[in-house]
């Protein structure tokens, strides 16, 4: 499989502070999530990928080329930064037209393209006449996403693109990103909203303290973590009764009860054996189960597990 981004013993420091600490990884085409707490090195990594910073040591290539001061490569990358900063005095079309011309769009097509992009990111037309300084956080975020898409990049790098968006907005952005990905655009997205990344990304890259802690698909990462008991959350009508039965059967490593919520959270010793017996155990207990959720499969869980 082709490798989109390759880092080899990449380090970046700011004075005595390590931003990235000797990281080596590969990112393949598709939707990749970049996860990590504040100060993990996500923005540093993104800025190196987009050619805004140079590595202090090691190397990083995108499409096989080093990004720093590399216009042909930058033509293939789109970037949407974190933060609310936009040129306050400009209107969105003016801004996109200027950036579009700088990106190589022809003068006769740039306006149409800018309008199409604003429609794509669902910025309502009635707001197009206002200056960017008057926009809400969510509207600014949409315009920023739009400028990243302007020149039809092959790789779209997004730093916290969901910030400031309401749930509907986040859903719309996620939908747009899925469509882009389906259209062949590779996307690298960093976010703290892990639930959205979980639904969106095929692969994740986990960072903390400037180091890569895990990379790959969620399933791969999870299976790589040893001695990690399966955790389930069961919603039923008689959680105490079910807990007593499962405990007597000797399949539990531990459990938590929330009778008022009708919830039973269990940790099983041997997941494979448990699932073989689960149906029989449930019928024997006589409890009526409404829902079962795996907590250990969530990205939040992986993140918590790996970063502690």
């Amino acid at each position: 499989m082709t490798v989109l981004i390759r880092a080899q013993e990449l380090s970046r420091w700011y004075g005595i502070v390590m931003g990235l600490n000797n990281v080596t990884f590969q990112i393949e085409p598709g939707l990749t999530g970049l996860v990590g707490p504040n100060g993990a090195g996500k923005s540093t990594l993104i800025q190196i990928i987009t050619g805004q910073l140079k590595p202090s040591s090691g190397q990083l290539t995108v499409f096989g080329l080093a990004p720093w001061n590399n216009p042909p490569l930058l033509r293939r990358i789109g970037y949407c930064p974190e933060g609310e900063a936009v040129p306050k005095e400009l209107r969105p079309l003016e801004w996109l037209e200027g950036l579009g011309l700088m990106s190589g769009l022809r003068a006769d097509e740039v306006k149409g393209r800018a309008e199409a992009i604003l429609d794509k990111v669902k910025l309502p037309r009635e707001h197009w006449g206002k200056r960017l300084g008057q926009y809400s956080k969510g509207m600014k975020q949409r315009v920023k996403l739009g400028q990243g898409l302007l020149h039809d990049p092959e790789l779209l790098v997004l730093d916290e693109p969901m910030n400031g968006l309401d749930p509907m907005g986040r859903q719309e952005v996620a939908q747009t990103l899925k469509e882009l990905s389906a259209g062949g655009v590779s996307i690298l997205i960093s976010s703290h909203i892990l639930a959205e990344l979980e639904a969106l990304c095929n692969n994740i890259l986990l960072l903390n303290w400037g180091r890569i802690l895990a990379s790959g698909s969620q399933k791969e990462i999870r299976s790589d973590i040893k001695n990690w008991p399966e955790e389930l959350e069961i919603e039923c009508d008689a959680p105490e009764k079910l807990a007593r039965h499962l405990f007597a059967a000797g399949v539990l490593a531990g459990f938590d009860l929330s009778p008022e919520e009708g919830l039973l959270r269990i940790r099983v010793k041997d997941a494979a054996s448990f699932y073989e017996q689960w149906t029989a155990l449930l019928l024997e207990s006589g409890a009526m189960v409404h829902a079962i959720r795996s907590r250990s499969r969530s990205l939040q869980n992986i993140y918590d597990k790996v970063t502690t």
């Binding site: 037209e97 011309l101 700088m102 990106s103 469509e179």
Partner: peptide, 26 residues
Amino acid sequence: ESPPISSFRATGTHARPGLAGAFRGL
């Protein structure tokens, strides 16, 4: 669904911006 937009890659608009184009944008 968000409206589809044409891909420039299909039309080959991947050339670097010329000096005039970049100046015009700035």
